[in-house]
Design a protein around this nucleic acid. Structure first.
Length: 476
RNA sequence: GGUCCCAUCGUCUAAUGGUUAGGACAUCACCCUUUCACGGUGGUAAUAUGGGUUCGAGUCCCGUUGGGAUCACCA
């Protein structure tokens, strides 16, 4: 049978990292077996709907290259793929479930149910409407009384089901709540809609957070009442922000788009989160989506929560940046250049010195800020033990450099380096005694991306001479 | 609180009951070097805890501790 998985997010805002990872695992389970990946929008809670959220979902999946085979925008044989457009369907099935004995009409208000419950004392809601005869309940429904359809659980004993990552799980039927399946507004709850849709859409594997483990027996009861076959369950542990807390947008934790905005590459983010709870069994860590499809296997999914470590993601992002063809890096860097430079610079060359040095694209502005505005540095910067320089040597070296560069026609790194190197040799100075002061003069910073001559190339002749001149004035 | 689940370096993780407990990030040292970074070499660092079972336990069983989840007309 062809594998069919679905990613079923609620359009409630940004795409969380944990969400994206779930989508990735769904995608990989399908695509590693030549199956179908379906996108379904779960918008049954009209209160939580956020305008534009579906577009974020579409765009995120596209950005990382996870294309779906069926979905709201492209259709498919099992549509519609937006739950609000399937409203009638759920009502139909809910009433059918009542007939089958798997659910009942309930006329209690939400308060009545709440009042009866006591979580501490472990008292559950006993629904009086369960005792109503079906005929009587139907009469009240027909009379226009507001109602919900609530699941009926009469089964005793323990429920057993198998999960791909957690193995066999046993839960007592007594623990299960007779939850609302169809709300008074006619919309289904997740608990009902996901079962109906997964069945109707022929979904074979369901991946979701392990917080659903305890309600899975309820879903199985619904499948059973309808005579349907439940899917293969793949419950995954959460992605954590620290040992105690889940990563969540509510806590202001980074979403996928936040990370992209901070200069992380979508491919790197995807690669990193794939490894948060899954490993290939080899020591390879860098994977394209295509490679993941080849090697993914759901039996290597882990069962403990994983803490999202931005430091490791940053390292991995650096790997991806360095692996970029130079012209691609330059293209990605351009918007950042536009943001932080107004001055004319040799940007092509700048890209070559920046590429091996930045770990995120946002690093560009941090590392190269001095190119736009020379900081007002302290001349103590010219002292450096290792380079054997001080203000005096700097003054001499800068004066000599200025002289040597003044009439230079060719302005490339090799030429500049040779000129300054020869100058050092001629005057009996060490390379560093010339190059270090020049670099400080050009940057006003202790550390810079690239050395003296590389910065000179980026700045161009005029600004280079200008800055050396300024340094000399400072030293006088 | 009831129930369910989880537990290897700081972090992500590997280890068909038999390895000096492996790798990666981070960190430290050194090398390379016109600073920094890249790259290279090496170091520090883990089986939560107590009992079993076994010739042998990170691995199997029980308890303890710690953590998470769930108990919505949210998903």
């Amino acid at each position: 049978m062809k594998i069919r998985t679905r990613f079923a997010p609620s359009p409630t805002g940004y795409m969380h990292i944990g969400n994206l990872r779930t989508a990735l695992y769904e995608y990989l389970i399908a695509k590693s077996q030549d199956g179908d990946f379906i996108l379904r929008i779960e918008d049954t809670d009209q209160k939580r709907y956020v305008e534009g959220a579906t577009d974020i979902i579409f765009n995120t999946l596209k950005q990382v290259g996870m294309y779906w085979d069926e979905g709201p925008d492209i259709g498919g044989n099992f549509g519609p793929y937006v739950q609000s457009e399937r409203k009638k369907l759920y009502a139909e099935y809910a009433h059918k479930l009542v007939e089958l004995g798997g659910a009942h009409y309930c006329f209690c208000s939400k308060n009545e149910a709440d009042e009866q419950k006591d979580e501490e004392a472990n008292i559950k809601f006993e629904d009086p409407c369960k005792l109503l005869s079906l005929a009587e309940a139907k009469q009240r429904v027909a009379a226009g009384e507001p109602y919900v359809i609530r699941q009926t659980i009469n089964k005793k004993g323990t429920s057993l089901f198998k999960d791909v990552v957690y193995g066999e799980i046993e839960i007592d039927y007594d623990e299960l709540d007779e939850g609302v399946l169809l709300k008074s507004d006619g919309f289904p709850t997740y608990n009902f809609a996901n079962v109906v849709d997964d069945h109707l859409m022929n979904i074979t594997h369901v991946v979701r957070g392990n917080e659903y483990i305890s309600s899975t027996p309820k879903y199985n009861l619904i499948y059973e009442a309808f005579g349907w076959t439940p899917p293969v369950y793949v419950h995954v542990p959460p992605v954590m922000k620290d040992a105690q807390h889940k990563l969540s947008k509510r806590n202001g934790d980074a979403s996928f788009q936040d990370l992209v905005a901070k200069g992380y590459l979508p491919e790197a983010i995807l690669n990193y989160i794939a490894l948060l709870g899954w490993n290939p069994g080899t020591e390879q860590e860098i994977f394209s989506l295509e490679e993941l499809k080849q090697v993914f296997s759901m039996d290597r999914l882990g069962k403990s929560p994983a803490i999202f470590d931005i430091t490791k993601l940053t390292w991995m992002n650096g790997c991806y940046i360095r692996a970029l063809p130079p012209q691609d890096f330059h293209r990605l860097a351009l918007p950042y250049y536009e943001k932080c430079f107004t001055r004319r610079l040799n940007l092509e060359f700048l890209s070559t010195v920046l590429q091996p040095r930045v770990e995120t694209l946002a690093d560009i502005c941090v590392q190269a800020d001095f190119l736009e505005n020379l900081p007002d540095y302290d001349i103590a910067l010219f002292q450096n033990k290792k380079m054997k320089t001080d203000e005096l040597i700097a003054k001499q070296a800068l004066a000599l450099s200025l002289d040597a560069l003044k009439d230079l026609q060719t302005w490339d790194n090799e030429t500049l380096f040779n000129v300054l190197k020869e100058l050092a040799q001629d005057k009996g100075l060490k390379n560093g005694q010339v190059l270090y002061p020049v670099r400080i003069a050009l940057s006003g910073k202790e550390t810079t991306p690239g050395g003296a001559t590389e910065l000179a190339v980026v700045l161009g002749k005029e600004e280079t001479l200008n800055r050396i001149q300024k340094a000399l004035e400072k030293l006088n």
